[in-house]
Design a protein around this nucleic acid. Sequence first.
DNA 1: AACATGACCATTA
DNA 2: GTAATGGCCATGT
Length: 112
Amino acid sequence: MKPKSSWTDIYQVVKAIPEGCVATYGQVAKLAGRPGHARQVGYALAAPSTEDLPWHRVINARGEISLPDLGGRKGLQRALLEDDGVEFDSRGRVDLKRFRWKPEEKDRVSWI
DNA sequence: AACATGACCATTA
DNA sequence: GTAATGGCCATGT
């Protein structure tokens, strides 16, 4: 099954992120079959189509939230992650070592 | 078609 | 640990 748009696959991957786990932009891009397109992932999540997407589970490679303090989305993301069971550091960083989502073979290219 | 912008990543110093 | 550089691609003007 091939994606219609460039963002469709990205949305699919984000939707597949289980509760209590987080994925980096590069990770999502790679899983979406587009390694190196991390920037596009962030751009896709910035779109208004994120209403039904767990965008809060997608963070940058530093394990921190890249969102600006606009619209209170940053605070919302932290609240949602904490509600999912993800712990935050004193600096507002997440321990990717423990909470990073590990995708499996069957969950990999099922939609590609 | 070209230019500028953007919730980024990896490498190197 | 931080700072700087190059690359990658979609969207809007």
